[in-house]
């Protein structure tokens, strides 16, 4: 398919993942430093369910998952860049 299309499908996917990755990582960093009221409530709670959840919140999954998406998106964008093919 990709050889017949001006823009390969994988490039569309790369662009989407790159945008999402940057946004999610940035949101992760932002909420790490400025947690929402709900997160603050969970972190301050002494209930067993909230303590278990607070451990997960401390992992800041948004930051590293966003970084992973950014990396995958960047690789796809570079590897399937339609401009590169033209050159």
């Amino acid at each position: 398919m990709e050889e017949h299309q001006q823009i390969p499908l994988w490039f569309f996917i790369g662009v989407l993942l790159l945008i999402y990755g940057v946004m999610i990582a940035a949101a992760g960093v932002y909420y790490w430093h400025f947690p929402t009221q709900e997160i603050q409530k969970i972190m301050a709670s002494t209930k067993a369910a909230d303590i278990a959840q607070s451990k997960i919140i401390k992992l800041h999954a948004g930051v590293w998952w966003g970084a992973l998406l950014t990396a995958i998106g960047a690789i796809y964008c570079l590897r399937f860049n339609p401009m590169k093919k033209k050159r």
């Binding site: 999402y20 946004m23 999610i24 940035a26 949101a27 992760g28 909420y31 929402t36 997160i39 959840q53 997960i56 919140i57 999954a61 948004g62 998952w65 966003g66």
Partner: peptide, 11 residues
């Protein structure tokens, strides 16, 4: 809702 924070939940 439990595991995905802002941005991730949107995804």
């Amino acid at each position: 809702a439990r595991y995905l924070g802002p941005g991730l939940l949107g995804l």
